[in-house]
């Protein structure tokens, strides 16, 4: 068995999930460092056009995994199809983008090969074989993880960990792979995806965002940060746990399951910086963090930081902002 990396790409309705291209960059880099060959596969129905696009990348082979029953994603259908592909291609490593779909699919697939998914990887090194970097304890610590047991190893790559612009171009042979699937193996009946009414709050156009996390402790304390947002003429936003608790409406949620924002300044108040939140705001031009825990992951992305009690710092900021806006008038 020749050593190879297989990248499983994700698409919906004929368009790439952007994270797939980042994973392709990761796959090319890893293969180069390990001296492996690298192939990519795109599962779905009618994926010939996307596969042809992949055939213009620097790859050793491209697989269009095409089947009528792959038109809609189902865990059962996609697992069966990729199981067959992997048994045919026999890669030593299988890379996925760490999307919601992959979280649904890849652990099931890995189990069929007596493996577990090394999920949400942020870095890769070749040190006598691949070593994968993962975040533990909500981003507070990193771990170097070495795969073991029988190959192939299954790995998913975190959004933003690799740069899609680094995907190398070239030419690759294209192969259509038609899995053997019957409707009876697919137990899930998916319906059309939908969006819930998101209300009127569009955080993506705000220049200043003051965002609040669990550190605010209770709903009655929300006005403390709301006042800062108002003094600065900015929008108020929140992390998922704050919205889950009903302290602020879900329309104000920033993060992988909420809105993705990139304001001029993002002031994170009492936010520890779990990866799901960072994904929604790390593109902000300036990030300010106010948190009592100096080791909170939010400080890893912050330009300015205050390690302190938000209940003292934020009201003092409001006073300061008010006094300079008065001076300006």
């Amino acid at each position: 068995m020749s050593e190879s990396v297989l990248v499983i790409m994700e698409q919906r309705a004929g368009a790439w999930n952007r994270m797939s291209l980042e994973t392709l960059a990761a796959g090319q880099k890893l293969a180069a460092e390990l001296g492996h060959s690298v192939a990519a596969a795109v599962p779905g129905r009618g994926v010939a056009a996307l596969a042809s696009e992949l055939a213009l990348k620097k790859l050793d082979c491209v697989y269009a995994v095409d089947h009528e029953l792959l038109a809609d994603y189902t865990a059962d259908g996609y697992t069966a199809a990729l199981d067959q592909l992997i048994r045919k291609v026999q890669p030593s490593l299988v890379l996925f983008p760490h999307t919601y779909q992959v979280r649904d699919l890849a652990p099931k697939l890995a189990t069929r090969f007596h493996q577990a998914l090394i999920s949400d990887v942020i870095g890769i090194r070749a040190e006598g074989g691949p070593v994968f970097v993962r975040q533990l304890f909500q981003g507070k610590l990193n771990a170097d993880v070495r795969p073991g047991g029988p190959a192939p190893y299954f790995v998913s790559i975190q959004a933003g960990a690799f740069n899609a612009d680094n995907v190398a171009s070239g030419t690759a042979p294209l192969e259509t792979f038609t899995p053997e699937l019957t409707a009876s193996v697919i137990r899930q009946r998916p319906e059309e995806p939908f969006r819930e009414s998101t209300g009127a709050v569009d955080l993506t156009t705000a220049e200043i965002i003051v965002s609040v996390g669990r550190g605010i402790k209770e709903k009655d304390n929300i006005p403390i940060v709301a006042e800062l947002a108002q003094a600065l003429g900015g929008e108020l936003a929140a992390t998922r746990p704050v919205c889950d608790s009903g302290w602020l409406p879900i329309e104000r949620q920033v993060g992988s399951s909420g809105q993705t924002v990139a304001p001029k300044v993002y002031i994170a108040v009492g936010i520890s910086g779990a990866i799901q939140h960072l994904l929604g705001m790390k593109g902000s031009k300036t990030i300010v963090a106010i948190n009592k825990d100096a080791n909170a992951p939010i400080f890893e992305v912050a330009d300015y930081g205050i390690v302190g009690d938000l209940f003292e710092v934020v009201p003092a900021m409001v006073e300061e902002v008010k006094s300079c806006t008065v001076l300006q008038r």
């Binding site: 577990a116 090394i118 610590l141 771990a143 073991g148 930081g305 006073e319």
Partner: peptide, 30 residues
């Protein structure tokens, strides 16, 4: 399957200007 070889604090991706002093001083500086 996978084993943890090493656990460590994440490296910072940004240079953070930490603002010190009392809450009032820090707020004013910020």
């Amino acid at each position: 399957t996978a084993t943890i070889e090493r656990l460590y604090l994440p490296r910072k991706t940004k240079q953070t200007q930490l603002i010190e002093g009392s809450a009032k001083q820090a707020a004013a500086q910020l």
